[in-house]
């Protein structure tokens, strides 16, 4: 019974990882790619680790698995936020079908500060991409 649960969890995790990789390969834009990759990859790692814990069924193994899951849940959003913020500052172009950019004009691109109430003019021209 535990083997069946373990195989089901591991297969679901691998399926989520495959969907994440498919989104990274097929999405048209950096930010949609990040939207696809971070959440599905976190869920996939968690499910595979839970499946491994069910397979072995030992207390030390379960503790390590819980440590890995908590660590991934803590660090994956931080890494994704830092990368998205850096890419937005670097001027990575959005998809041409993008309807609205809520951050446009609210970031001072020289000092990297967020201004919420009034708009600042864009300091860098649109084509100045240094990545």
């Amino acid at each position: 019974m535990a083997q069946n649960i373990s195989a089901l969890l591991i297969f679901l995790g691998a399926l989520f990882m495959f969907i994440a990789a498919l989104g990274v390969a097929r999405m048209p834009d950096l930010f949609t790619r990040m939207h696809s990759s971070t959440k599905s990859a976190t869920l996939g790692v968690g499910l595979i680790m839970l499946g491994a814990a069910f397979h072995f069924g030992e207390i030390g193994m379960t503790m390590r698995v819980i440590a890995i899951i908590v660590f991934v849940l803590l660090t994956a959003p931080v890494a994704a936020h830092m990368l998205g913020r850096a890419a937005y500052f670097a001027g990575v172009p959005l998809w041409e079908g993008t309807l609205s950019d809520a951050l446009r004009g609210h970031y001072d691109r020289r000092t990297h500060r967020l201004i919420s109430d009034e708009k600042v003019e864009e300091n860098l021209p649109e084509g100045d991409v240094a990545v």
Binding site: I10, G13, A14, M17, A20, A21, V24, L30, R33, M34, S37, T38, A41, T42, G44, V45, I48, M49, G51, A52, I68, V72, A76, A79, L83, A86, A87, A90, V92, V131
Partner: peptide, 20 residues
């Protein structure tokens, strides 16, 4: 940044691969 997103997901997939 696109390449870095790919590398990040690649490392996550590798962690899952090692568990499998």
């Amino acid at each position: 940044p696109d390449r870095v997103v790919g590398l990040d997901l690649l490392s996550s997939v590798t962690v899952g691969f090692i568990a499998v």
